[in-house]
Design a protein around this nucleic acid. Structure first.
Lengths: 232, 232
DNA sequence: CGTCACCTTGACGAGTCTCAAGTTGTGTGG
DNA sequence: CCACACAACTTGAGACTCGTCAAGGTGACG
């Protein structure tokens, strides 16, 4: 895919139809295109906060804790706009889960430019609040849930974001490994594995391949996740 | 304090000088003033997402997990603008830690109105990204840290937000109980207590009263928290 | 100065991590 | 297309942190 195509994908998702060609072009001149292979941490942002648009692929936002422990702060998929901070109490890096096409923008100039049109800022605010909402849910999961509840929550959330309905339920093709799931849920790969086995043996899921998971029983999974009853 | 005074505090913090009187008035007509006593969950928002401005006092945003477990998602202080969702995988409620003066706005109409001026949306985006950043740090804390690291992180974060410098270090007057700290860090009150004792016995903190904590050694606390080394 | 909620301390057990040894997809080269 | 090789995953046993339950302390209020 060529650069113009990639930028067009960004424009379609983030910039409203109504904006002027001039603004459109200014965003284009701010963009830095990066192709990342699976496992790459393509670009650090050279000390500045970045906004990254995921034109193709999926990524993890990883924070480095001491003693080599890693915590995955968020998974992101095609069409997501991720804020990657340069300086915080922990070091963050954006890593490709599969081959990716990414568009990097320096955050400060991006926001400055966005302010030319209230509707762009509004879109970004909307995205930011969505990210905040997901992060809060993750907080609850990590703070107050058992391993099985965490994994159930994760599976449901992934079902909502990248699941495909099929005759037996919802099919998931996860781009992340068991280790990634563990690093996201604050658990080890062994615990993930054991809990998957548990859910499988109770008939709530099937795992036809390494990365495929079939959610057979959403209602029961929701209960296992400790979620609220969804009203009709 | 009267309603106009409270709203003025909101306007000073959130609305830029430059906005028109008309917009100013529209915000004012959207506002719902609530006085909350310590421990109150003053207003649920009657099923709609709310934006809440904390004109005076401090609050906790609590999520209800199953089996009566609570997770505090965020603490907020005077001048903060909090987004309180009505419907999510978990039920949220905003609870006063001390006597508070709060201003509630229906989120949808608030955002709609904000769009009249790009700079207002920009302010809110900035606040939202700040909240996201704090929530991410919390995620790391809950996912990958021991009890002592969590408490150290908490103390440092509180020092930054509401600490007062004094001759021996940074003085904290915490509006929240041990239970609240535990519910925020995903720990029990007993564990909080034990870890405070540990830090006290190592000379890193002093606890002159129930709610007062003195941070004596920021550098060592930072190390205990598993934070990055702060470069000069 | 008494009362009470809040906090501290101790003993024990549950859940998850660590370490170690298999097992099984998946991709590659013949 | 099949066999091989390897990484990823699964399973098991023991250790360790933190939760639970229970019994005191103690500061802050009337």
């Amino acid at each position: 895919m060529t650069f113009p195509d990639l930028f067009e994908r960004f424009a379609t998702d983030i910039l409203p139809m109504s904006i002027s060609d001039a603004t459109h072009l200014k965003f284009q001149s701010l963009a830095r295109y990066v192709s990342a292979r699976c496992g790459d941490a393509p670009f650090t942002g050279s000390g500045h906060d970045q906004m990254v648009f995921i034109a193709r692929g999926s990524t993890k936002l990883v924070a480095q804790a001491s003693h080599g422990r890693e915590q995955i702060v968020a998974f992101n998929f095609e069409g997501d706009l991720v804020s990657v901070p340069a300086r915080a109490a922990h070091a963050y890096s954006l890593i490709a889960l599969v081959d990716c096409e990414l568009i990097y923008f320096p955050a400060d100039r991006f926001f400055q430019l966005a302010q030319e049109e209230a509707v762009i800022v509004a879109t970004m605010l909307d995205r930011a609040l969505q990210a905040l909402s997901r992060c809060r849910e993750k907080t609850i999961t990590l703070g107050r849930k058992t391993a099985q509840e965490r994994l159930s929550s994760f599976l449901i959330a992934m079902g909502d974001r990248i699941g495909v309905a099929c005759d037996k339920g919802v099919a998931l093709d996860l781009p992340m490994s068991r280790r990634d799931i563990g690093d996201s849920l604050g658990l080890t790969i062994e615990t993930i594995s054991r809990q998957l086995t548990e859910l499988r043996s109770e008939g709530l899921i099937e795992t036809p391949g390494r990365s495929q998971i079939l959610l057979l029983n959403r209602v029961e999974l929701n209960a296992r996740a400790g979620h609220m009853q969804v009203a009709a």
